[in-house]
Nucleic acid binder design. Structure first.
Lengths: 227, 227
DNA sequence: GACGTTTTTTCGGACGGCCTAAAACAAGCA
DNA sequence: TGCTTGTTTTAGGCCGTCCGAAAAAACGTC
């Protein structure tokens, strides 16, 4: 399996995981290739039984494809932990390096590295490391869905360089308890309060990239969260 | 620069370093490709100014090619130290993994890793790590050139999986002082004595893969070492 | 429901790196 | 010297992954 194909699998996996639309165009944009290349590769991966693709319609991973993608994500995140914890990489920088290393990593290396790092449960962005955690899925509730006076724990952020640069400036920490103070109208920023009572303004866009858990809804039920 | 091309450069570099003949065939055998592929790649590398190649004649690295190759060897050996010291890989196994990782390593990663490891001077096989050591070159005197009663310090061994498997069985250690007890005729083994007075028989072939330093010649001068 | 826009696919082609077969050359030996 | 053997190069071709142009399908809007 070429690094190339692996990246297609991982991209589909992550789009699915982040509840984004799995389309030819999305994949093309993420991998910086043309749409025809994506179609071609999807056809090849379908032939290999890793992807299920019907023209103009569905793109999804088969069980085999899912397993491969999960392996990749595992390797990726183990490397991220190494880079952040041992080599002191900035949170925004681990992704790019891990993206290359993951393809140079066989199962044995991944396992040894995992042991060396003490079987970490989460990567520096808060994503779970498949195989190391009891739970299999991350929270999919974003900070952006909360309403004023709701509170929640910041668990995970999207692993995107530009966002992470912004996130570093916000000085928030994963695991921190946040309370929404207010939400400005016209797609304005969220004002949240951290446990040490500091307030931070977060763009609506960025709030959609931040996943929370243990949500305490003040007035409304989760079903009404899009209000 | 593709991992592929990097491997050609490194191969030429290592052939040169180990004083072996730099021929199309040698390169083809090491990289497991056909002779035409080698010719083709040498032509391409010559065009890029990394290699100097005249048909049916010379193959050598340009200064630029040498610099690239040295960088690669540096990355390779830094990874080897990591794999051996931190992940407890066997000496015979580090090479293969490092061979892949080296191509996934930019300068920044190499530097950080190097710091993390404490700027090691030598890789697990005893080879110097370019940039970390004052000296630039390894010893090129093999154990195989010594005569009975000569003594020397085992400094470095060739980084080849099959040899290293054998070497592990010998239970010798790098840095250890060895004295040649005798040399069996008809290309028979070397009998050497270690500092703790154990004697070990080493095949003539293997003795050619083991480099020594601080040689004390008992009766003859180094010039007569091939006798 | 028809039309313009966007997305996806098909088609033909480029390029890198690999191959085999065969030709050119070099080296060793009779 | 010329023949045999081994090495290197040339020629032609394959496969994987990419592309742009253009056709086909789907989507959004009136």
């Amino acid at each position: 399996m070429s690094p190339n194909k692996e990246n297609y699998l991982k991209t589909i996996f992550e789009l699915e995981h982040d509840h984004q639309k799995i389309s030819n165009k999305n994949i093309a944009d993420i991998l910086n290739v043309s749409a025809p290349s994506v179609t071609e590769m999807l056809t090849a991966l379908t032939k290999e039984g890793l992807v299920f693709h019907t023209p103009y319609n569905e793109i999804s991973l088969t069980d085999a494809g899912l397993a491969r993608a999960r392996e990749l994500v595992r390797k990726h995140r183990i490397w991220e932990v190494f880079l952040a914890d041992k080599l002191h990489y900035a949170m925004a920088d681990v992704h790019q390096a891990a993206d290359i290393l993951e393809h140079a990593t066989d199962d044995r290396l991944a396992d040894r590295l995992n042991e060396f790092l003490g079987r970490p449960k989460r990567c520096p962005h808060g994503g779970i490391i498949p195989g190391n955690s009891d739970i299999e899925d991350d929270s999919d509730i974003t900070l952006g869905t909360l309403a004023p006076e709701d509170s929640a724990t910041l668990q995970r952020v999207i692993d995107n360089h530009d966002f992470l640069k912004y996130f570093e400036d916000l000085q928030l920490r994963l695991g921190e308890r946040l309370t929404v103070v207010k939400k400005e109208p016209f797609s304005g920023p969220f004002i949240v309060q951290t446990s040490d009572r500091a307030t931070v303004a977060i763009s609506e866009n960025a709030a959609g990239y931040m996943f929370v858990t243990d949500v305490h809804y003040h007035t409304k039920t989760p079903d009404q969260k899009t209000e």
